[in-house]
Amino acid sequence: MQSFKSKGLIAFISALLCVSLAFVFMVNRASAHKVSHDAETLKAFNDAFMEQVILGDELFHGATMEGINMSNTGMACAMCHPFSSDVHPHEYPKFQEQMSEFATLRDMINWCIEKPNEGEIIDPDGEAMKALEAYIYWSNRGSVLDPGRH
C-alpha cells in the first residue's frame, strides 16, 4: 500500500515537471526559428552584435566603464595589438606559454590586463569581457580557425 502511494506521488510530480518544462520550453522557443528570417530581423541580430563590437573596440583602445579598471599604466590593449593583430583568437583554446597552462581567449585577455597592463582582471562572463571578445573576433574574422596552434 505504502509503495503504491509513493509510486503515485512520483508519477504526479513527474507529470507536473513535464508540463512545467514543456511550458517553459514553448515560451522560450516562441520567438526563435518559427518563421523565415527577413532582412529586418537579420539586421537586428547584426546590430546587437555590432553594438558589442563597438563597445569592445572602445575598451580595447583605452575607454573604461563603471566597475572595471583594465590598466594602471596608461597602456591599452591596442597599443600592442593595433587592429587586434597578434591576438590570434582563432588559435584558442591552446596551451598558453605565459601561463604554463591550457587557456581560453578570455583567460589570455585577463592575463594581459593583469600582467602587462597592471590592471584588475574582469569578470570572465561579464559585459566587458563579452564586448572585448566580440571586437577581437570581429577584427579577426576570416582568419583560419586553428585551435591549439602556437
Binding site: 563597438i54 573596440d57 587592429f83 587586434s84 579577426n140 583560419v144
Partner: peptide, 20 residues
Amino acid sequence: RADSGTGDNVNQKLSPRISD
C-alpha cells in the same frame, strides 16, 4: 616560423577598426 614575429601570422586576417 613559430618564433618569427611575422611568420606566426599565416592564419591571421585583420579588419580596420570601426568604432571611431
